[in-house]
């Protein structure tokens, strides 16, 4: 079987298109490359959605932690401690068991033009359940980053804004917010990278893969179990992860450039990879 045929068969296998049976014997290098690459679709799906949803929620949490309202403050602090203080692995297990115990209810959501049936059963599936866990988890980590950045906003900037008569929302959106985002960005880039790496946990914990549709590591482990040779599938998975890590660094670097466009070149913060945020 030629490699192009393999790409047609297994290129979208992880999301349910193409050949149904996974290769069992005479596994070729091409099959490993294609199938593990196909699994990356899941990692990217989890990372993109969890990060974009988590970004907004984490800023709410960060402002909650910085707020003087005791209820908001306590709640945000507790949330951040919970998600940063316990292993993501256990969070996955716990969430899965909790979702399984939920009564099997179905809710019809009327969107006006179409009716969506939201069932609690979906929560036990990785595409929704694992996404929710990753979203909640990254919100906790990112909230801490944004909270620290908020505290690091120069006092002079805020006082200057006050002197110009800016208050409340105007002061926040025009002065605090851009500076906070700029200060937080290098650390947030690291968070994005680590969330991306953490997506590899999704199919290894509570959430089962449905019809052998899993992520890159799921297929890497599959090949390892079939061939007993870890030296091919895991480096392939590592290769894909490094590739997409570089993509993340590139995209976040562009955003960093834009956030820093008004800052003198000597004072700009460059993104430095610091492996200190894994969960």
């Amino acid at each position: 079987m030629s490699c192009s045929q393999t790409i047609v068969d297994y290129g979208l296998r992880s999301i349910g298109y193409g050949e149904r049976l996974l290769p069992k014997t005479d596994i070729t290098l091409c099959e490993q490359f294609v199938l593990i690459g196909s699994g990356m679709i899941w990692n990217i799906y989890f990372a993109v959605l969890a990060l974009s949803l988590g970004f907004m929620f984490s800023i709410t949490l960060a402002l909650g932690k910085a707020s003087e309202n005791p209820v908001l403050n306590r709640m945000s602090r507790g949330y951040i401690f919970f998600f940063r203080g316990s292993p993501l692995f256990i969070q996955f297990f716990f969430a899965y068991e909790a979702f399984v115990l939920l009564p099997k209810l179905g809710v019809d959501i009327n969107l006006g033009f179409a009716v969506i049936n939201a069932e609690t059963r979906w929560l036990t599936k990785a595409w929704l359940g694992a996404l929710i866990v990753l979203f909640l988890n990254t919100s906790g980590y990112a909230a801490e980053i944004f909270y620290r950045a908020y505290r690091a906003v120069p006092r002079g900037d805020v006082e200057a804004a006050q002197a110009y008569g800016m208050t409340g929302k105007t002061r926040f959106w025009r002065v605090i917010w851009p500076t906070m985002l700029r200060i937080a960005w290098p650390a947030y880039t690291n968070e994005a990278i680590f969330l991306f790496h953490a997506t590899a946990l999704a199919f290894f914990s509570g959430f089962p893969a449905w019809r052998q549709q899993g992520d890159a590591l799921y297929y890497a482990k599959y090949f390892n179990d079939k061939t007993f040779n870890p030296f091919i599938p895991y480096p392939i998975a590592a290769f894909y992860f490094i590739l997409f890590t570089l993509v993340i660094i590139f995209i976040f670097g562009l955003i960093n450039k834009r956030l820093n466009r008004h800052v003198a070149p000597s004072q700009r913060q460059s993104i430095r990879y610091r492996p200190q945020f894994l969960r």
């Binding site: 990278i193 790496h197 953490a198 590899a200 946990l201 290894f204 590591l217 890497a220 895991y234 998975a237 590592a238 992860f241 490094i242 890590t245 570089l246 990879y273 492996p275 894994l278």
Partner: peptide
Amino acid sequence: VRGVPELI
């Protein structure tokens, strides 16, 4: 350790 998930 850069760029590769520690899980791998």
